[in-house]
Amino acid sequence: MSAEFQHGWYIGNICVSILYGKSIPYLSELKAAVLTRTGHAIGMELVIYGVSMRTLFRRKTQHRSKKDMFFVVFSTILLLCCTINLASDCFFGEEWWIVNGGSEQWFADNVSAWYQTWASAVNVLVQLLADGFLIYRCFVLWDSYLVVPLPCLVWLACLGIGITTLYYSGSPGGDDFAGLALQTSTAYLACTMAINFSMTALIVARILYFARTTGRMLANGSTRQYFGVIAMVVESAALYTVFSLMYLITFAIGSDLSALFMSFYAMFTVISPQLIIMRVVTGSAWSRTTHNDLATISFADHPVSTNVTSGSRTLNNTGHIAMSQTSFREGSVGDMTFETKHAKGSAFDVV
């Protein structure tokens, strides 16, 4: 392997180690900052996981739903898979550079070692979980089953191609960067990229649509958590999509930079779903009722005026509806006033 490939692999491992976490001396301050009071970097992955678990386990047992327990299991699986992948890459790098002096022959002989195959299997599992979760989040925002069937079919194709890729890359003499393993890996990455890009585009489009129809009616900043740039990047798993695209391009053209982007791609396959889960458990993420809730808030906070035939109807902030000289085809209705009570559960009183 070229020096550029080895540099990319080394820098990628270092960056992944930083993103994963270096030490956790103060678990009680996970939510406060990425740096602890001792100055040691915790790492994005461990911070996100810690905040999510702390939020979930602070709830009383009787208040935890099945969805909460799903998030606990799902997040823990992602963390364990990330840990296995990082440990495998670090051990492989140590054997390659320190023990064997960066020998190209050693790399060719051991790239399909059992622990590397194990790490590859873990990566496939994480990617399938992340893609499935992204499909689910797209369904939540659109609240329609029409966005589900085609991505699910592509997901099933990813499952089959991923197993085939593991077979070829894990066989004796197999290499992800050559032969049939290279071809199947490219097909696999293309399928996952299709899911990532389409789901990200649909989620961003949905959020922008809501921002135009609802967000502009609320000027008090209450929609920032739903329509802000950070919210859009996290909800759409944009970082996961960006790094998967960069890795696919460099891998397909045979660039040695693929070793660098491979590390970021593998890491953000874990971090992006974890970010979404953290927003969900802390109550900042989109749900299937968010749009209706925002519409209700905007209706309550702003006067609404509509014209009906030749008359007018006005709802003001005091809860009064005034109708004057309103015509309904043949005949007319005189001046009427409807008064609403602000008490919960009250109906309209006709005066």
Rank of each mutant, 00 (worst) to 15 (best):
A3D: 15
Q6Y: 12
G12P: 00
C15A: 00
I18D: 03
G21F: 13
K22S: 10
S23L: 05
M44Q: 07
V47T: 07
G50W: 00
S52I: 10
R54G: 15
T55Q: 15
Q62Y: 07
S65L: 12
K67T: 15
K67H: 09
F74N: 01
C81N: 00
C82A: 02
S88L: 06
W97L: 13
N100Y: 00
G101Y: 06
N110A: 06
A113L: 05
W114C: 11
Q116N: 11
V122T: 08
L129M: 05
Y136P: 11
C138E: 09
W142T: 01
L146F: 05
V147F: 04
G160T: 05
Y167P: 08
G174K: 00
D176T: 13
L182M: 04
L182Y: 12
A187S: 06
N196E: 04
I207S: 13
L208D: 02
R212P: 01
A219H: 03
Y226L: 08
F227W: 01
I230L: 15
M232S: 05
V233M: 08
V234S: 12
A237R: 10
Y240K: 14
V242R: 02
M246I: 02
L248E: 09
I249L: 01
S255W: 06
S258R: 15
F264R: 09
F268N: 07
V270E: 07
L275V: 10
I276Q: 14
R279K: 11
V281A: 10
G283F: 11
S284E: 08
A285W: 10
R288V: 05
F299A: 08
F299V: 06
H302S: 12
P303N: 07
N307S: 03
S310L: 13
R313D: 15
A322G: 12
A322Y: 14
A322D: 13
T326F: 15
R329V: 13
D335Y: 06
F338M: 09
A347Y: 01
